[in-house]
Design a binder for these strands. Sequence first.
DNA 1: GCGCTCCCAGTAAGCGCTTACCGCAATAAG
DNA 2: CTTATTGCGGTAAGCGCTTACTGGGAGCGC
Lengths: 367, 367
Amino acid sequence: MNDSDADPHGLTIYDVARHAGVSIASVSRVLNNRNNPRPETKERVLRAVQELGFVPDGAARALSNRFKEIVGVVFRRALTGATDGGLFEDENESLLFEDVINRGIEVAARHRGFDLLMSSVPVSDRYPQPRISALAGKCDGLILHDQVLTAAEIQQVALRTPVVILAGTAIERGVNVRSDNATGMRALAQHLVVDHGYRTVAYLAGHADSPDNLARAEAFERAVDEVGAACWTGPVWQGNYMAAGGAAAIRAVFDSGHPLPRAIACANDQTAIGVMRALAERGVRVPAEVAVAGFDDIPVARHLHPPLTTIRQPIHQLGATAFDVLYSLVNGEPMTEPEIVLPTTLVVRESCGCPPESPAARTGRKG
Amino acid sequence: MNDSDADPHGLTIYDVARHAGVSIASVSRVLNNRNNPRPETKERVLRAVQELGFVPDGAARALSNRFKEIVGVVFRRALTGATDGGLFEDENESLLFEDVINRGIEVAARHRGFDLLMSSVPVSDRYPQPRISALAGKCDGLILHDQVLTAAEIQQVALRTPVVILAGTAIERGVNVRSDNATGMRALAQHLVVDHGYRTVAYLAGHADSPDNLARAEAFERAVDEVGAACWTGPVWQGNYMAAGGAAAIRAVFDSGHPLPRAIACANDQTAIGVMRALAERGVRVPAEVAVAGFDDIPVARHLHPPLTTIRQPIHQLGATAFDVLYSLVNGEPMTEPEIVLPTTLVVRESCGCPPESPAARTGRKG
DNA sequence: GCGCTCCCAGTAAGCGCTTACCGCAATAAG
DNA sequence: CTTATTGCGGTAAGCGCTTACTGGGAGCGC
């Protein structure tokens, strides 16, 4: 309480050493749980640390042992940096999917003492590489969500730092973690066409250049085709992974005077939200007149009206896996496989036309 | 392409200097936009940086100039770190409110070249201070969401690092950023009791020790009282800011055989979600039989059924403000005010009993 | 034409840690 | 009692940057 209760910023391992009457090496060893120091010394150091409220500086530590224990996470953000309430009202929901992934990353990261350095890239930013490089300088490795960089840019970044990509395309020096789009979409096609008997279905696409979107579209169209129904496609059925995109597509269909299909499979849940809203606007009943399904199973999906039938990705695990892979990369372990695929499952709720679960079943309690 | 296309990890300012035929000082100066180097030198350096793909190490930089350009953000997480899909299904929605704040922080941070080091604390973690201290070592300052640390713990952390608290209580060495709970709640009380004429209303509380909750409860009760209606309180009307808490409270009221009030003001939107779900389970119509209102105006609020009447906080700005304040603290500017209060507004939708907006009005297009 | 100033660029110190290396004391072995 | 062995703890080098200090060359005034 007397000798060095100095200014907050200048409190170093030297202060602790002096306070405890040992050398800085001993302090460091205690702090890093080396077995050298004998119990008595250890306790003295710990007491000093406690009394001074010492916290070792992460930068110095990193500089010295090559580990920052920080993983960078980059994702696209729908809206620009406007800070007033009006602009991003509608699309702010898009935070859902990425954020669940990020939570998964975080949980896994903490097991290893890593923290997450988050950085989002506004869609308006056409040339995000400099920012991402700067980020790379602050962390041990990078996890990139889809739509952040082009494959070529990723390659370049991966040259200098370990990289894991989420739902992108496999690249040379990085690992791609994604979920099994095809299986999920096949199950959905089966459910809509065979179980429900819908003869006309459409796939409302996500970003045209998203690998996930491509895989979903292809698998769905093929599966629908195989069971003998027609899958509508074309420029009208193009969304952008966001609610507004889904709504706009539906409105365009209406305005064009074309009929609606009996069921719409959306590229993701966000899109389905927009679709359902637009259908409600025009007085179309879901699922009685048009059935709707999503992809992702984001948390809100079950609260929609009607509850959304969707394909569940193990979103949380997607993130956790991405981190685990990156961690081994950071530790210099060799890359075993360029791509890791996680399973998906069809989650049937009501928007496809299935009957509601009973409340009893839902709460899992008495009748 | 020849001399030092060495291993990715060992690529330092020395390599760049050699490649460009200058000294490391010049490289550093160019990289930091000092005006010293003349154009020709500058260009030589930049070319070398480009060719080598050099990215300066953040740790070394931080060590040398005292700025990590990283701000730590800590928030409570509803669920534990289980990585399987089953456990956190229901409450994962709780990510909404905090994440919008975090986005606000991030946007503001990027204007200053800062990145966000995110760290969530599971509710199960009763003693998170060590983790937070470790985090403090990796950043220039900390933004703490509510419910992360006790006031005493915050005081202690604030001793060693600049701290801004979100929706907490003002402390000695940190700044508290919150929104104007009282004004919002008064407007809501007015709307429910005076405009709609509901005579019995309840406040379904959030965490008992949350300053926000306390302020909301008090303001609401007083305002309801002033306009001559009865505000129900008591242990049954205790939630926990989460959907499950709201639902549980409603079920408890049912099971106890007590009547329901005509309107329920919930501590936040999450709680309102749970309440509406529980009411629906029991066949109670909202708003015809019981009106429901929330607080926050999280993005999902408008997609609920019925759309939720709620009090909008400038969530995004809350975060942005928190960062701006922290930034000035980090730069050694003196603390001007211990607390910053942002305005709230009542957002009337349908769950309070108001008529739906027309679709035309909603899309802002033709009739 | 010589010295003064100014601008640019290089040298080196130091940020706060970790850790290799070394010395010393205590213990074990002969 | 002497020597080999072990283990604790101190000294100092160095991680990759930034920057104060310094030196050298060019331009200026007298």
